[in-house]
Design a protein around this nucleic acid. Sequence first.
DNA 1: TCAGTGTTTAGATAAACGTCGAAACAAGGT
DNA 2: ACCTTGTTTCGACGTTTATCTAAACACTGA
Lengths: 121, 121
Amino acid sequence: MSTATIGPEAPATARPLPVLNDCCTPTSAMSDDDASLLAGMFKALADPARVKILSMLLNAAEVCACDFSAGIGKTAATTSHHLKLLRDAGLVTGDRRGTWIYYRVIPQRLAAIRDALTLGQ
Amino acid sequence: MSTATIGPEAPATARPLPVLNDCCTPTSAMSDDDASLLAGMFKALADPARVKILSMLLNAAEVCACDFSAGIGKTAATTSHHLKLLRDAGLVTGDRRGTWIYYRVIPQRLAAIRDALTLGQ
DNA sequence: TCAGTGTTTAGATAAACGTCGAAACAAGGT
DNA sequence: ACCTTGTTTCGACGTTTATCTAAACACTGA
């Protein structure tokens, strides 16, 4: 049996996300790069199937990839597509243990997104 | 001079968003409705132009609509489109005062999105 | 009422996205 | 070696989205 980490294409310890406040002035917005980076993270969450996947992962230490398809009501191919997007965003990680791949959420990354939305203070 | 609230098409005091944790089991995801509602909120943030608009709004009590176009580098029409999406999501609100429309962020709504991402304690 | 400025809507177009079936790849068991 | 099961990639299709120009709408001040 092999144990190999599946993704993430984006490292789990990616650089901190920019925050929305304290980043610019009322008449000039944040940089293109920062805005794209943040928007990309939100895009990773901007689909009901991916929200559902995350909801399953947040109620267990880990979830077998084989359970997502039934859980979200999509084909295995579609499920795999969404898992890849979540991996690429650095939100989840999976490791193969024999036949199955087990996924976990990366809490620090989710917290970083939350922090990007935190208002003044 | 008239003072009329522009939007939001979604009320500022919308019902609380569902949260990702404590909503379901490891093998069954959250409901279609909850997932769509949450995904819709994230979709509202899933574009660099809208992130930039928000970044401007979070650095001022209010911002004149006339400033967004230059701030995000898009035409007035495109800017108006993005503002509408943010209004529909209940994230911002604007009121016309004479010639200009001034926009404000709705902090409670932003906080609700952040809370939806909060992990179990 | 008219001209000027700010804002939104309508229509069009190109790119991005979600979805599926089918095929390919990976691992384990016989 | 083969077959079975789990997972990903490929190719295609229809929908949604972002963007623009042009036209319409809203308001102010002369």
